[in-house]
Simulated scan of single mutants.
Amino acid sequence: MAKSWILIRCALFIIASVHVVDVSGICFISTTNSIRRQVIDVQSTTTTTQVGCTIICLNNANCQACIFNATTNRCVLLGGPDPAASDQCPAPYTSLVRTTSNCPVLTAFNVDLGYAPGPCSTSADVGASPVVLAKPVCGSFPSGNRKIVFDAILHDGTHMILESHTNSFIQWDTDLGSWYFSLNGLIYYFKCGTCVKPPVTQSDPCVCAPFAVEPPLAGFNTPTAPAIDSAPACPGMVQQHYNRVRGTGGAVQDVLDSRGRSVYCAMGEWMLLIDTSTYYNQYTVLAATCVTADAG
């Protein structure tokens, strides 16, 4: 008898202003001087906090300082001292200078301080606050009651849905003064956030886009759409094959047993949920296609 499989491709939406790989020991010191610096960029996107501006600077290898304009919520990225400048600035200016020395220790506040539900949920959907360094980020729940995600408000004021993965946790960065979500070495900085049970019924713009039925991989046939909110996602099929991106840094192809696995819409983001009596995990996914292995 031919074996059956399910193909799941996972979402890749690492946002440059959010994700930082390694910033340990880096901080920004407010400095006033008259040294001319090269203007690298004036960000066209807004950020609502000074910390958000420094995180944008961290993601630019040439950025050595930045200026946050709280009136326009714009971030100006600066390089090193301008070698072409023959004189100093006519008046002193204050910038946030990137450094690894004399970093102050910034005190944490409650991770959900200032949190407000976005367009895809209400206060009734909000669960318990996450515990710092606990894995998964939203804790453990009884089997059958595990559709829960971490709703982070980014420093630009937008919401980002992050999975409650078994390796996910939140921590405070004492150098930058920001909370961050960590998953398998990837870091996503955010302003505040909490755990939310996604509403079952959603309206635009929170409805997940329908899965596109992808062409089958070599050795497979008869691609069909998966069942939604039902385990297994491909009834009668015993394994699944998917590309996992978030938390790995790149696409990784795995073959996994599909028992206890389902896909559901989490406030505009598809989630692959693994929910059995002994194990729990979930991943963001972009596509899901049921396929059957070729005979032989």
Rank of each mutant, 00 (worst) to 15 (best):
N73A: 06
S258W: 06
A266S: 03
D87Y: 15
S121V: 07
M1W: 04
P130G: 11
I55E: 00
K197A: 13
V97T: 03
F181Q: 11
F220E: 01
T31H: 02
V23K: 07
T158K: 00
K3Q: 02
R246D: 13
V285K: 00
T99R: 01
T71P: 01
T158G: 02
D41W: 01
P235A: 07
G79Y: 12
S168A: 11
V20D: 01
A2L: 02
A70V: 11
N243S: 08
N243C: 03
Y189L: 04
L58V: 05
P199D: 08
C120K: 15
V105S: 14
C195W: 07
G219K: 13
L78G: 04
Q171M: 10
N281M: 09
G118M: 04
V39M: 10
Q38R: 15
Y242W: 15
P210D: 12
Y115C: 01
S203C: 00
A233M: 11
G268W: 07
S178G: 10
G219A: 09
I55H: 02
T47H: 03
C103Q: 13
W179R: 12
Q253N: 14
V255K: 13
N73S: 13
T47A: 00
A212D: 06
N33G: 06
N62Y: 05
G185K: 04
P205W: 05
S44N: 10
S168T: 07
V97L: 03
T48M: 07
Q239N: 13
C103F: 14
C10G: 14
G144T: 05
A152K: 14
L176K: 14
T71C: 00
H241C: 05
I228E: 11
D294K: 14
S17R: 12
C27F: 01
T47R: 06
S143C: 01
D229A: 15
A85L: 06
S168G: 02
V213I: 15
Q239G: 12
A124K: 02
D294G: 11
V132Q: 10
G139Y: 10
A91H: 06
G80S: 12
G193C: 07
T48G: 03
R246K: 02
S129T: 13
T166D: 12
P210T: 11
C290E: 14
T158P: 05
T278G: 06
D275Y: 11
F190H: 08
C75Q: 06
T94A: 05
A16D: 12
P104T: 12
L217H: 06
T49W: 05
T201K: 15
V200D: 11
C63K: 03
S143I: 02
V18A: 08
L106C: 10
S95F: 09
Q202V: 09
Y279L: 10
A231R: 08
F211Q: 06
G79P: 02
V238A: 14
N110V: 09
C63E: 00
V291M: 15
G127N: 12
A266D: 01
P210E: 09
V213S: 05
Y283M: 04
N33K: 09
A85G: 08
V111L: 08
Q239D: 10
